[in-house]
Amino acid sequence: MKHTAPQGYTSVAPWVVTDDTGALLDFITAAFAGEELARVPVEDGSIGHGEIRVGDTVVLAFDRRPDWPVTPSLLRIYVPDADAATASAVAAGAEVITELSDSAWGDRGGRVRDPFGNIWWVVSRVEEVDPETSWQRMSEPPYAESMRIAQETLDAALSGRPVGISSPPVRHAD
């Protein structure tokens, strides 16, 4: 597929709608070393358009209108050091949803909820793992437990239940 986005933009871009886009841009700058590109206020004082570059991606944002539903975003960010980035996010006001752990497929990461209700998967690639090895690892106790906790903590965070629901992965025949 031909790259049709303008220079410096990816083909798919996340939009975040929040009650305080200015504060969101400040959070992303502090937590993930974002580089703010645009903050466009509109006549009523809200932010009608904001952009911030995080790594190779531009995240777009704008303020929610009072009669729109709250719509939290779910975002994954690859960083050089997931532990350090999670600590930065917490220092900037995020709450840990899922403690950091190592995955069967070679990532280390966890989840935080930013002060605006968005959930960020904060992830580092720590090793290259082929698909067959990943599937084998998923049945090993430490990786199976990590997957269970990841599913349950996300479900609890999104559903509001005190204990979330999980289900082990099932490999289909190729």
Rank of each mutant, 00 (worst) to 15 (best):
P115Y: 02
A87S: 11
D102N: 14
L154E: 04
D114I: 02
E145F: 06
H172G: 04
T4W: 12
L60E: 08
F32R: 06
A85I: 02
I52G: 01
A157D: 09
T98F: 11
T98K: 09
L154M: 15
T29I: 08
T86H: 03
G50D: 06
G8C: 05
F62Q: 14
D174H: 11
A144H: 06
R65V: 04
I165W: 14
A156I: 08
A33C: 03
L158R: 12
E35M: 05
V79F: 03
G22L: 10
A5T: 13
A23P: 05
P6W: 01
G117F: 00
L25G: 01
V70C: 02
M147N: 14
T57D: 10
L74K: 10
D107M: 04
S146Y: 08
G110H: 04
M138C: 01
H172N: 05
R113M: 13
R171N: 00
M1K: 13
M147V: 14
D56H: 12
S46T: 14
A156Q: 09
A5F: 04
D44A: 06
R111Q: 12
V126W: 01
T71D: 09
Y143Q: 06
D44M: 02
S103Y: 02
A92M: 08
E127D: 14
T71N: 11
G45R: 03
Y143C: 13
G45E: 06
G110Y: 09
F116V: 01
S146E: 07
D20M: 09
Q136G: 00
A38H: 09
W120T: 01
L74F: 15
A38F: 13
M147K: 06
E99Y: 05
R76D: 10
T18R: 07
V112W: 05
I165E: 14
Q151S: 10
F32H: 01
P69A: 07
R53I: 00
V16F: 08
Q136L: 03
M138F: 00
V112N: 03
N118S: 14
K2I: 11
D19V: 01
R64N: 07
G48Q: 07
E128V: 04
E95Q: 15
D20R: 00
P162T: 15
M1P: 13
V40C: 05
G117W: 00
I97R: 13
G34P: 02
P115Q: 03
T29D: 12
G48N: 09
A92F: 07
W121N: 13
S46M: 10
S146H: 12
T18S: 11
R108E: 03
F62S: 08
S11N: 14
R108Y: 06
W121T: 09
D20S: 11
V96M: 05
R64D: 03
L100H: 01
V122N: 02
V40N: 11
V59L: 15
D67A: 13
P141W: 06
W105Q: 04
A85G: 05
F62E: 11
V126N: 01
Y78N: 05
I97Q: 09
A156T: 10
D174A: 15
E128Y: 01
R171D: 00
Y9M: 13
R39C: 09
W105V: 02
E51G: 11
V90R: 09
A13T: 14
A92E: 03
A33H: 06
L37I: 05
V163L: 12
R125Y: 10
R39A: 07
Q136N: 06
G34Q: 07
L100R: 14
I28K: 03
G110P: 02
T4C: 10
